[in-house]
Every structure is written in C-alpha cells, then in structure tokens.
Simulated assay, not measured.
Amino acid sequence: MKRLLPGILLFMLFTVQVFAQKNDFEKEFYIGVGGGAFMSTVDFVPAVLQKPSLGIHGGISAKYISEKHLGLMVELNYAQRGWTENFPAESGFSYSKTLNYLEVPFMTHIYFGNNVRFVINVGPQLGFLLGSSNHMNEALSANITAKREENPEAQIGMQYILDPGSFDYGLIGGIGMELKTGAGNVGLEGRYYFGLGDVFENRKTKENFFFSRSAHRIIEAKLSYFFKVK
C-alpha cells in the first residue's frame, strides 16, 4: 500500500496543472481553528477483534488559495487514536488503548462554488506520538497471566506489551461544505485516514517482532472556522 503515496503526489501535481488559471485572481489566505470526533481502529495482522474506538481531535490550520478552485492547506492537530477490543460478552474481558498524536496533514485544497463551496482535501499526513495509556480489566489481566505461566514461550497478548513507535505516516482525504460569511468561513467535513506506517515494529530482524501489520484506520468528522487574513 505504500506505493499509493507517489500516486497521490502525482495526482496533486496534476490537479495544480488542471486548475491553474492564467488570468488575474485575488489570492486568499486564511487562518482557522477546528475540531471534532472520530472512530478509529488498527489494522492488525495477525488480526485482533475490535470495535470502533471513539476519540477527539482539534487544532489550528492555515489555508492559502493561490488559483481559482485550488489551494493548499496545512494543519497542526492533537488527536486521540487507538483501539477497543471486542470480546464476547460472556468473557467479562475488556481492553482499550489510547494513543495521543500530534498530526500534521499537508493537503491540496480543491473547491467549487463561491459563497457556498463544495470542498475536497487530500494529501499526506505525518503523526508524532505524544504518549499512550491503556485500560485492562482484572478478568483479562488474570487470564493472560495464567496463560503465560502455563506456556512461557507462547506469544500471548503481544498488543498489550509491545511499545508503540513514535512516528506515523499515511494518507488523508475528505469532502465537505464551506459557507462564506461576513464574520468568517464555517466548514463541515468528513475525512478518512489510511495509515501507511505501523503502530508496532514490523521488521522481522527485531527481537520483539510479532505483528506484520498494525496501521491506523480513522473516520473523522470535523467542524472548522476560518478567518481571512488577506
């Protein structure tokens, strides 16, 4: 899936060529704030049964519209990602992990319309882990301890003991609407993040290797407010 990144970058360059205008255009520069909620999971291989984990995200953004229908947008966001495991109700087990990230998406911004705009944002995103926390109930903890004592060589519950990596990267894309008013612009957007990096080390040369895949999958809803600087 990492081969998708060059394709996205080529798409962004192609978009610039398609929408670039030769005539005069009044450029627009905005500063904004925004936030919302999302549902996150982690694509584990071997699989870990999960249900969507709810989190929040928010931060600041800068948007520069250099051509008609086309611009660039960069954001600096705090986000609570993670996963919640899905155990049978009769097991009495529960486990969830929260991973706090500083996210920096770099997106091509495409819009259609004037006072009411249909917007498309797409591009790469970097993530830097700030910290993590987890919740495991006593029933699950006791079960795992008993299994490890029974078979010390078995790799049991590795997602509970491996340390997450400090860096993440992937692709983000979204569609939404933006309303221009005299007091600023208000936008509502839905996004999807496809992680290309992994939460846990996946190189087989590492001693603690277990998961060959552990990438973030996130569906986001975001409400933003922009004010025009120039």
Rank of each mutant, 00 (worst) to 15 (best):
Leu140Asn: 07
Tyr160Val: 05
Asn137Val: 01
Phe227Val: 06
Leu76Ala: 14
Ala47Gln: 10
Asn100Pro: 02
Glu67Trp: 10
Gly113Phe: 12
Phe211Glu: 01
Leu99Trp: 03
Arg117Ser: 06
Val122His: 03
Leu70Ser: 01
Ala154Tyr: 05
Gln21Lys: 04
Ser40Asn: 05
Phe211Thr: 00
Ala37Ile: 12
Arg117Pro: 13
Phe25Cys: 13
Ser94Arg: 12
Leu4Tyr: 14
Ala37Ser: 02
Thr84Val: 00
Leu130Gly: 15
Pro105Phe: 06
Phe29Asn: 09
Asn115Arg: 11
Tyr30Ser: 12
Gln155Tyr: 01
Gly187Cys: 06
Gly173Glu: 01
Asn114Asp: 15
Lys222His: 09
Asn77Leu: 14
Lys180Thr: 07
Trp83Phe: 15
Asn23Ile: 02
Lys204Tyr: 00
Thr145Met: 00
Gly184His: 00
Ala221Val: 04
Gln159Asp: 10
Phe19Arg: 04
Ser166Tyr: 13
Met107Thr: 13
Thr145Glu: 02
Met158Tyr: 03
Thr145Pro: 01
Phe25Val: 13
Tyr169Cys: 07
Glu149Ser: 09
Met12Leu: 15
Ala47Leu: 09
Leu76Cys: 06
Gln17Ile: 07
Gln80Ser: 10
Asn115Thr: 07
Ile8Lys: 08
Met1Lys: 02
Phe112Asn: 10
Ile8Gly: 07
Glu103Ile: 11
Gln17Gly: 12
Val45Ser: 14
Gly35Leu: 04
Asn137Glu: 05
Lys68Val: 05
Leu140Arg: 09
Ser94Ile: 03
Gly7Arg: 15
Gly190Gln: 08
Met177Ser: 01
Glu28Arg: 15
Phe209Gln: 11
Ala20Ser: 05
Lys206Gln: 06
Gly82Pro: 00
Asp163Cys: 08
Ile218Lys: 01
Glu90Thr: 13
Lys180Pro: 04
Val199Trp: 10
Leu130Cys: 12
Arg203Glu: 15
Lys51Cys: 05
Thr15Arg: 11
Phe38Met: 11
Ala146Ile: 06
Leu162Gln: 04
Glu149Leu: 09
Tyr111Leu: 14
Gly157Trp: 03
Phe128Gly: 09
Asn86Lys: 02
Lys228Thr: 09
Gly157Cys: 02
Tyr64Gly: 05
Gln21Thr: 11
Tyr95Ile: 03
Val119His: 08
Leu49Phe: 13
Gln17Lys: 03
Asn185Tyr: 11
Asn23Met: 06
